[in-house]
Design a protein around this nucleic acid. Structure first.
Lengths: 249, 249
DNA sequence: CGAATAGTGTCTCTCAGACAATATTGC
DNA sequence: GCAATATTGTCTGAGAGACACTATTCG
């Protein structure tokens, strides 16, 4: 069942990588957060061709000996200052339509990142500016490449994932209140949730939240102080959170 | 906001695609079906290097002007005879760890396909043989490349997707009985389901199944004949089907 | 009729959604 | 006390799981 070493070596020696059509491989990062109760994405204004002056997702070419995940987290850190362990990172998918990049055939592997509200990031080398933009305010026609499709896929995945996984906590700081978590859900789903049912639900779902020993923070403008929580160990929520009007068809 | 044409043309003219590290891009297909009540995957035995003699998922290099989806359906048709419209096809993800292919740096975009039980497929050019293998019988260590990881991701995605989407019907022929659909769920999830609750559930979930006018097929070895159904128009199930013991943690 | 499979009804328990009521803070 | 926010409790209806029961076929 195993191949003979001599045979294998012979084959490798005669193999010419350039006989295969050359592709470029990039990573693009859909970095999402909740800022001022607005579900927002990090966009950069490109300062080089192609799509110079247009808004785009941060990203760039994968290096020859670099894993895809490593490339994504490298771009994330370089262009936004977010460290991998401070956020939720998952692969979103590959986008490779011929012609999506006018320079050459490029396949982009996109990554979805959830991070808590962050200080304003700094522009990178090829970017004129970088900014958080509320998802609802993004004009898809203004985005470079096929980043409108990538962003749409990331946003929809984020909305779906909040239902059955505890990743919403990745939008919060390490310690947070139930109300803060609820505002994350409300921002991502785009509608109000009943604070009382929400509270009962998240505190009653096993593994979602763990109470912090010192349960008394401040109150911003009055009201009873809220208890603090950290994220629990669950990777899936059971039962799931349900989007209010969610009637699929 | 838009770039000047002269500027753009100048840049493109001076651009050298080969200055970027060359990647190979392949598609791999995780083709799943239910055969004899067994959840099975199509594997080929490789007849060329690398991994000659080892089992692998069907796949191959993407052509220079070919869309990723098109490449996947092309390989699907070429190596298995399955047409795209006869199956459910979705992208699974990209796998691109350096070293996963000894020939060169290769990023594989994998596709997940659900098809009804099919006649035995024929081997392709670089494959010695091709066969349906029950998922439970696959030895991950015997698979070529990183196809153990790709297969595992596809299997888990399939199991999860049966919960909230009607894709299980893609494993059935165009017209099917509730019992046939139930055996699909049982094969994929690996355990028995209550036929009575299952029947009530699937027929009661809006958009999942539509009854066929002529509701009387044959009975294989006795028993009341079952009604026939086709898949409905729903893309998501509400409420979802639930895996029996599914206690995430 | 008996065996086998298809399909319906019933009961209980969990849980989502609506919303009343209580608790705890600042002013 | 009053306003504001946090948290608990109560009720109702949908639905999942267990399982008795009826329906329809073949031999």
């Amino acid at each position: 069942m195993t191949t003979e070493p001599d045979d294998e070596a012979l084959f490798l020696a005669s193999y010419d990588p350039l006989a295969f059509p050359p592709f470029g491989v990039t990573v693009d990062v859909v970095l999402l957060t909740v800022r001022d109760d607005r579900f927002s994405v990090l966009l950069v204004e490109r300062d080089t061709h192609p799509f110079r002056g247009r808004l785009a997702l941060p990203g760039g070419f994968v290096q020859p000996d670099e894993d895809l995940d490593a490339a994504a987290t490298r771009r994330l850190a370089a262009e936004t200052g977010v460290r991998r362990d401070a956020a939720h990172v998952e692969q979103l998918g590959a986008f490779g339509r011929p012609g999506r990049d006018p320079r050459m055939r490029v396949v982009s592997v996109s990554y979805l990142v959830f991070a808590p509200d962050l200080p304003a990031p700094v522009p990178g080398r090829r970017t004129r500016s970088v900014a958080w933009v509320p998802v609802a305010d993004v004009d898809p026609a203004r985005l470079a490449f096929d980043h409108d499709q990538v962003l749409a896929a990331g946003v929809e995945r984020a909305r779906a994932k909040l239902e059955y996984s505890p990743v919403a906590t990745a939008f919060c700081r390490e310690e947070f209140t139930v109300a803060e978590l609820r505002r994350v859900y409300e921002a991502v789903w785009g509608g109000p949730l009943d604070p009382r049912n929400f509270h009962r639900k998240v505190t009653g779902t096993p593994g979602f939240l763990v109470p912090v020993g010192a349960p008394a923070p401040v109150g911003p403008e009055g009201g009873r102080p809220a208890a603090l929580f950290r994220r629990g160990s669950a990777t899936l929520l059971h039962p799931a959170m349900l989007r209010p009007d969610h009637r699929p068809g």
